[in-house]
């Protein structure tokens, strides 16, 4: 069993940490950057959302792997909840990215969607998770659903790394570090990194809170519906 007091303590620390990060993100001064101006503050939200999604994708794939190894239904619940929260953060990151590019590089044009490699990759990851959820809906028996959904999740995880190589060869990037763009360290002032790195930890902590809460809820639901003694 989990230690509830320790859990509450860690959760409160993360919430406090996140509140401080949010205040610092809006209140601390930032250096003036061409085109971006104050939208550069989006760095504190947009980028950590990506990292959180990546972490969620790894957690989900790891638990899918464990489903195949042990056949444990709890692992399936974990994989599903990580995928759901990963998709949630992916949508958030996608939206913040679209809005950000629209009102900086594409201001005055009608361009909303651009074929940026990272944008394309995350939209594909969202499609894969959409297919994963649809597949789960088509399977009735819980243990069969756990196994087959895990197979699909892992199969998707073996094909997506190719995108990292294929897509950048086909499209130009808006992101720093890509070909012709300045590296991340060149355009960020030390004071921005002072908020940026804690924001990553805060967002991953938020993922952890959401994830553990949802897993506990799903476990209780599973027990209520499947335990014959209840």
């Amino acid at each position: 069993m989990i230690n509830l007091r320790r859990y509450t303590l860690i959760r409160n620390v993360i919430l406090l940490w996140m509140s401080v990060v949010l205040c610092a993100a809006f209140l601390l001064g930032i250096p003036k950057i061409n085109i971006l101006e104050h939208t550069a503050r989006n760095l504190y939200f947009h980028v950590p959302m990506w990292f959180t999604m990546m972490a969620a994708v790894f957690v989900s794939a790891y638990h899918s792997f464990q489903v195949l190894r042990s056949g444990d239904i709890v692992r399936d619940i974990r994989a599903l909840q990580a995928a759901r929260i990963g998709a949630f953060f992916g949508v958030l990151g996608l939206l913040t990215g679209i809005v950000w590019s629209k009102f900086t590089w594409y201001v005055g044009t009608d361009v909303w969607w651009n074929f940026d490699p990272r944008q394309s990759m995350v939209s594909l990851q969202l499609l894969i998770y959409g297919a994963y959820f649809v597949l789960r809906g088509a399977l009735d028996d819980p243990s069969k659903r756990a196994r087959i959904a895990a197979v699909y999740n892992l199969f998707a995880a073996t094909t997506t790394p190719f995108l990292l190589y294929v897509i950048p060869r086909q499209m130009d990037s808006l992101h720093p570090g890509a070909e012709g763009n300045p590296a991340f360290s060149e355009i960020t002032h030390p004071i921005m990194r002072l908020v940026f790195y804690p924001a990553i930890i805060g967002f991953i902590g938020m993922f952890w809170i959401l994830y553990t809460q949802r897993v506990r809820m799903a476990l209780i639901k599973h027990r209520v519906t499947h335990d014959p003694e209840l």
Binding site: L124, L127, I128, G130, A131, V134, L135, G137, A138, L139, D140, K144, I148, V151, Y152, F155, A156, T159, T160, F162, L163, V166, I167, Q170
Partner: peptide
């Protein structure tokens, strides 16, 4: 994926949904 959808209870048009996102690297 054909083996996967054979285990699903609702077999209909599931295959394209599952297949297309995986094949983007190949297609490009």
């Amino acid at each position: 994926l054909a083996a996967i959808i054979a285990r699903a209870s609702n077999k209909g048009p599931l295959l394209p949904v599952l297949l297309f996102p995986l094949l983007v690297p190949l297609l490009l």
